[in-house]
Deep mutational scan, measured.
Amino acid sequence: MSIQHFRVALIPFFAAFCLPVFAHPETLVKVKDAEDQLGARVGYIELDLNSGKILESFRPEERFPMMSTFKVLLCGAVLSRVDAGQEQLGRRIHYSQNDLVEYSPVTEKHLTDGMTVRELCSAAITMSDNTAANLLLTTIGGPKELTAFLHNMGDHVTRLDRWEPELNEAIPNDERDTTMPAAMATTLRKLLTGELLTLASRQQLIDWMEADKVAGPLLRSALPAGWFIADKSGAGERGSRGIIAALGPDGKPSRIVVIYTTGSQATMDERNRQIAEIGASLIKHW
Rank of each mutant, 00 (worst) to 15 (best):
P25H: 10
V31F: 04
D33R: 03
E35Y: 06
E35Q: 00
L38W: 10
G39M: 14
D48H: 00
I54V: 04
P60Y: 01
P65D: 11
M67V: 10
T69E: 03
T69L: 04
K71G: 03
L73S: 12
C75H: 11
V78A: 09
L79N: 07
L79A: 05
E87A: 13
Q88M: 15
Q88F: 03
L89Y: 02
I93V: 14
H94F: 11
Y95E: 01
Q97T: 09
V101R: 02
E102Y: 08
Y103G: 02
P105K: 14
V106A: 13
T107H: 00
T107R: 01
E108W: 08
G114T: 06
T116A: 14
E119Y: 15
S122L: 14
S122P: 13
A124K: 13
I125V: 15
M127S: 10
S128Y: 01
S128T: 01
S128C: 05
S128E: 01
D129C: 11
L135Q: 12
L136Y: 12
G141A: 09
G141L: 09
P143F: 06
E145P: 04
L146T: 02
A148M: 15
F149W: 14
L150R: 06
H151M: 09
G154W: 05
D155P: 12
T158F: 15
R159N: 15
L160G: 09
D161G: 03
D161V: 00
R162T: 01
R162N: 12
R162W: 12
E164S: 15
E166K: 12
E169C: 01
I171Q: 00
N173R: 11
E175I: 05
E175V: 03
E175G: 00
T178W: 05
A183K: 07
A183L: 13
A185D: 06
A185Y: 01
L188A: 03
L191Y: 07
L191W: 07
G194W: 10
T198D: 04
A200F: 07
R202E: 11
L205H: 07
L205V: 06
I206M: 15
M209C: 14
K213L: 10
V214M: 01
A215Y: 13
G216F: 15
L219F: 02
R220E: 14
A225H: 08
W227L: 04
F228R: 12
I229H: 03
S233F: 00
E237P: 14
R238C: 06
S240V: 11
R241H: 13
G242Y: 15
A245M: 07
D250I: 02
I256S: 12
I256V: 15
V258D: 04
T261P: 05
S264N: 01
A266M: 15
T267H: 11
D269M: 12
E270T: 15
A276K: 13
E277Y: 15
G279R: 06
A280R: 07
S281V: 14
H285N: 12
W286D: 03
